[in-house]
Design a protein around this nucleic acid. Structure first.
Lengths: 140, 140
DNA sequence: TCCCACTTGCGAAACATTCGCATCTGGATA
DNA sequence: TATCCAGATGCGAATGTTTCGCAAGTGGGA
């Protein structure tokens, strides 16, 4: 828990939420975060507020899953990474490297790029296998 | 209005919604679509239902804007295109070509890619100009 | 230790989206 | 063309997520 913005108080809820995000291997929804810290007793609205502040301070990243209208958050580990999301099981797998090269060209004179988002969707090996075997059963 | 899936009735609401999407130059939210067709009287829940069906039939595409948790829809013109979105004015500008090449490599044996999403964010020339001039005023 | 600006508890409110069911209607068929 | 019915819509309630308001509580600087 380095990189704590000066001026931000280390309150119980903030520290608890930060720890949950730090320990998570996959991005979490506000509800999941709330569930994971809630041996204590924090309010869901507080979780939202804290996540909002963390996001402003760029401590965390807000991402959209395949199904829009479920927001997820993850710690900003300050790495430039993109992911492949399995449509079957929602697991996320890192891409070896950023597929966007420097030569992106926008059809608008003077557009200044600050950021980009890349997401790849598909099926992981297990889900492919599961689909194949259930298909065999149905066909038989 | 070609490409109408056979088996899908041409009801008033469906036709109206389709026309709105066909005429739109930018993706629209369900509410905007509802507003644009509503010289007649369609129900917002109907708009959602119809959009869901259109999406299933792959007649339209559902996309996430810069602020996640605001869903937008646009007609599927069956072109492979990506966009740069201006963070200032939310206008969308087409990219010259898809920056994703064939060599995407996922760190998961056997992952099968079916789809990808690329979005670039930044500022268009007008917004940059606007920011510059207002900054000058403040600095003065 | 005191103090106060910033946080949180708590619940209500504001949204977006989905669901249920009675009624209606497009379009296949006679 | 008239009839019929599976599927579509009107309508509003329900659900789920996210934000807001305000009184009470608390971290951390003086």
């Amino acid at each position: 828990m380095n990189a704590w913005p000066k001026g931000m108080k280390r309150t119980k809820s903030r520290v608890a939420i930060y720890k949950v995000l730090e320990a998570a291997s996959q991005p979490l929804s506000p509800k999941e975060i709330h569930a994971r810290i809630n041996q204590g007793d924090f309010w869901l609205s507080t979780v939202y507020r804290v996540l909002g502040q963390f996001e402003q301070e760029k401590m965390i990243l807000r991402i959209a899953g395949m199904d829009v209208n479920h927001t997820l958050f993850e710690l900003n580990r300050h790495e430039h990474k993109h992911f492949a999301v399995c449509v079957g099981c929602h697991q996320r797998f890192e891409l070896d490297d950023c597929p966007i090269h420097e030569d992106v060209h926008v059809q608008a004179e003077g557009f200044e790029i600050t950021e980009h988002r890349v997401e790849v969707f598909g099926y992981c090996a297990e889900c492919l296998e599961r689909m194949r075997s259930s298909k065999v059963k149905h066909d038989a």
